[in-house]
């Protein structure tokens, strides 16, 4: 189970490219979130929990799978904290820790297709490797 794994805030920051310290706790993310009622932890709490290092709790929470990735919070966030990106980063962290590498370089050539965009390869590495 995921509960055995945890990641550091630095890893989350590296995956998401977001700095939760920029948050000024305005609450526009939570105000706008259409999945609010489904969540145990709400978007503004997400940011605060990553900032204070309580990432294990997040990884175990069902909330991270309730986020629809509608990006409304990113649209509204005045501080470029972008909660949806943080949530995505935690989700990725869970996936990565659970299964290890899903993609190894040797497998790449046989899976290539001529019209596959390069960006897809890059993002596949991000998503499916540790």
């Amino acid at each position: 189970m995921a509960s055995n794994y945890t990641v550091t805030p630095e890893e989350i920051l590296a995956i998401s490219g977001v700095n939760p310290r920029r948050c000024m706790k305005c609450g526009r993310c939570t105000a706008t979130c259409p999945a609010f009622a489904e969540m145990e932890y709400h978007p503004h709490q997400f940011v605060a929990m990553v900032e204070s290092g309580r990432i294990g709790e997040l990884m175990n929470s069902r909330s991270i799978y309730r986020c629809l990735s509608c990006m409304a919070c990113i649209e509204r966030c005045p501080r470029q904290v972008d909660p949806a990106r943080l949530i995505e980063a935690v989700r990725l962290a869970v996936e990565r820790k659970q299964g290890g590498n899903h993609l190894i370089p040797d497998q790449v050539p046989e899976r290539l297709e001529p019209d596959m965009p390069q960006q897809l390869l890059v993002s596949a590495y991000r998503k499916y490797t540790k």
């Binding site: 706790k25 526009r28 993310c29 939570t30 105000a31 979130c33 709400h42 503004h44």
Partner: peptide, 23 residues
Amino acid sequence: GAVGKVTPENGKLIVQASDLLMN
């Protein structure tokens, strides 16, 4: 907290907002 969305509807303005202290 903050206002996330204002929707004009039937002469009213539906304001969706957050109350952070009450979560």
